[in-house]
Amino acid sequence: DVEEQIRRLEEVLKKNQPVTWNGTTYTDPNEIKKVIEELRKSM
């Protein structure tokens, strides 16, 4: 579920933690925001 994935990513973003997405680890909050944007567009 895309909305659930977005929620999880936003939680990680709030905690300022790195997130691994599709085999890539993002540590930059701006990169994580881009991933969230892409997910929103795909909905």
Rank of each mutant, 00 (worst) to 15 (best):
M43S: 05
E31F: 05
E4I: 07
T20I: 15
D28F: 03
D1N: 13
I6T: 01
L39V: 03
I36N: 00
I32C: 01
V19Q: 02
T20C: 13
E11Y: 05
I36H: 00
V12F: 15
E3D: 07
K41C: 05
K41P: 01
E10Y: 08
Q17A: 10
K41A: 14
T25L: 14
V12P: 02
P18R: 04
Y26M: 11
I36R: 00
R7A: 10
R40M: 08
I32P: 00
K41Y: 10
R40A: 03
N22M: 12
K33D: 03
I36E: 00
K34N: 08
S42A: 12
T20S: 13
Q17N: 05
W21C: 05
G23C: 06
N16E: 07
E38R: 09
D28I: 03
P29N: 04
M43L: 15
Q17W: 13
R7I: 06
P18V: 10
K34R: 11
V12Y: 15
K14P: 03
S42E: 08
L13C: 05
T27R: 04
V35Q: 03
N16C: 09
Q17D: 07
E38G: 09
V19P: 02
I36P: 00
Q5H: 09
L13S: 04
V2Q: 06
K15R: 12
K14T: 11
L13F: 07
K33P: 01
E4P: 02
V35P: 00
N22K: 06
P29Q: 06
G23A: 02
K41E: 08
K34Q: 11
E3Q: 12
E38Q: 13
I6M: 04
R8L: 14
Q5S: 10
I36T: 01
R7T: 06
K34C: 07
K34D: 05
N16A: 09
V35W: 04
P18F: 05
R8I: 15
E37H: 07
Q5F: 14
I6H: 01
L39H: 01
L39D: 00
P18K: 10
L13T: 03
T27S: 10
E38H: 11
E37G: 05
E3L: 14
V19K: 01
R40T: 05
M43F: 10
M43K: 05
K15T: 15
L39E: 01
L9Q: 00
N16M: 09
R40K: 11
T25S: 04
V19H: 04
E4H: 08
E37R: 06
L9C: 02
E10H: 04
E38V: 09
V2T: 10
D1V: 10
